[in-house]
Deep mutational scan, measured.
Amino acid sequence: MAAGGDHGSPDSYRSPLASRYASPEMCFVFSDRYKFRTWRQLWLWLAEAEQTLGLPITDEQIQEMKSNLENIDFKMAAEEEKRLRHDVMAHVHTFGHCCPKAAGIIHLGATSCYVGDNTDLIILRNALDLLLPKLARVISRLADFAKERASLPTLGFTHFQPAQLTTVGKRCCLWIQDLCMDLQNLKRVRDDLRFRGVKGTTGTQASFLQLFEGDDHKVEQLDKMVTEKAGFKRAFIITGQTYTRKVDIEVLSVLASLGASVHKICTDIRLLANLKEMEEPFEKQQIGSSAMPYKRNPMRSERCCSLARHLMTLVMDPLQTASVQWFERTLDDSANRRICLAEAFLTADTILNTLQNISEGLVVYPKVIERRIRQELPFMATENIIMAMVKAGGSRQDCHEKIRVLSQQAASVVKQEGGDNDLIERIQVDAYFSPIHSQLDHLLDPSSFTGRASQQVQRFLEEEVYPLLKPYESVMKVKAELCL
């Protein structure tokens, strides 16, 4: 049975990233139509530049190519590739079939990587351009969430054990800070992308030097003109047959890092959902379990974690691919890159769409948070109580021993009897502590235990987050809708 299948058929496997999760716009960027249309555009740009620099290419040939950029006979191309065992030459023939007058000058002087690699770089750039505003929107939604809850005390956790208090907004800023680093890295790697350009079979530009009869300047002009037509500021000066596969490492490393950030955020949300302090959106008709109707599973956060793990592992592909590119190139890269580049971007696209949807509907339960604080705060307040007693004339050592005994009794009630923490009640009825009984409410005010959390939130948002989001103001209103 021949390899390949009808990918629109229910009898043929289709990647869930495309069929179930990723956005239509990201799927289109990695589609065959987008790819092969870009090949034709690159052939047109090459012909236009070659004509401008004096090669015998007519206006009629150029116009014929322009008129057929979208006229792609995919069936013919597939048949040609089956016959020739070469995808680029299959599309040269297919393009030439609908451009008979231009057929002889299509791909003039070029090698397969002229269309293959340059198209990949265009796709990487455009895919990054799709991700950047999506990530900015996630940051914006979380920034709104953090600002609104900047002063809401909550129990902090280290080692997932109760620690000092923080605020809900401050905790959210930990998430935002990681995503801001990801946004900066995505922008950097996007701006650092260079075009492969017009380089020939081993990167020496020998074929173009021959076409222009040894004119170095025209060869350099050709490279520059096509690079500018493709919208790049610069091209690699040095290439082998391909652009260095280190570029793929750079791009997928940034995406993998984004995956790590999203995994951490969504894990926190899942843990908070278990504590009943916070939940992701839950639709009115949504079913959490087929057997347990009360369940409210954090399905979206779980999906993000599941896909983020996949995204983090994909960076190993370009690392290994770059390491086995012998001399000017081997074909070890080809099949692998067809999979890992598309999957990385479709996965990143999915987790950003999902995280935006989550961040637009996060639900906080202040009463649950308050109750958990009441359970733990008495123990945390013991040092403040000791200091207040010393100020009232008591002995630190005597007070410490009193607190120690009462704390152990209260802990026994919590752990052995399943009761509430009654340390404060014990202190309130103990005559030894009568000098500070009137101060206990103040000493137990949760806001006095959150330090500068709310001020940190305000400063972080104003100095770091809002300036970073400013270039994306025009796209901030787009909502994230999930079908599944």
Rank of each mutant, 00 (worst) to 15 (best):
L69I: 14
L121V: 14
G451W: 00
D191L: 08
L331I: 11
D420P: 07
A480L: 15
D349M: 08
I106W: 02
K82L: 14
I237Y: 11
D144W: 12
G419D: 08
S23I: 05
T166S: 04
K470G: 13
Q325V: 12
T354R: 01
V189T: 11
Q205Y: 00
T166C: 11
L209Q: 13
D420F: 02
H91A: 14
R459A: 11
E463W: 08
V251D: 02
A235N: 12
A273M: 13
R196I: 03
A127V: 05
F157K: 07
V168Q: 02
P293Y: 04
L46P: 02
T354Q: 12
L352R: 02
F95A: 09
G361I: 01
Y114H: 01
L165M: 07
S31Q: 09
S447R: 14
F236S: 08
E376A: 04
E213A: 14
Q325K: 02
P467S: 09
V390C: 10
G169W: 03
I123V: 14
A2E: 09
D332G: 04
V92D: 01
R452M: 10
L341F: 15
A3W: 10
T52A: 13
V226C: 08
Y243D: 01
T111H: 00
L130Y: 14
R137H: 10
I339E: 05
A260P: 04
S261R: 04
V324R: 01
S412Y: 15
M65I: 14
E302Y: 00
A49D: 01
Q409Y: 05
L44T: 06
F433G: 04
Q205H: 07
M316K: 06
C173V: 04
G8S: 15
A410L: 06
T347W: 03
A322F: 10
Q221V: 12
Y294D: 03
I123D: 00
T202P: 00
Q428Y: 14
T38M: 09
N353M: 14
M299W: 00
E481D: 13
N297C: 03
A291E: 02
P298H: 03
V247F: 03
K35R: 14
G5A: 08
Q161W: 00
E70S: 11
S207L: 03
I176H: 03
K66H: 10
A77H: 15
P471T: 15
K264L: 06
M278N: 02
L406H: 15
C305I: 05
G419Q: 15
A206V: 05
G109E: 01
K218G: 09
A77W: 08
M380V: 05
L377W: 02
V92Q: 00
V92C: 11
W43I: 01
K415S: 06
D441C: 07
A90R: 02
F345E: 04
R337G: 04
V254W: 09
C340K: 01
E463I: 11
L468N: 13
G200N: 03
L53N: 06
P378H: 03
S23H: 09
D333W: 04
F145C: 08
F236A: 05
L211T: 14
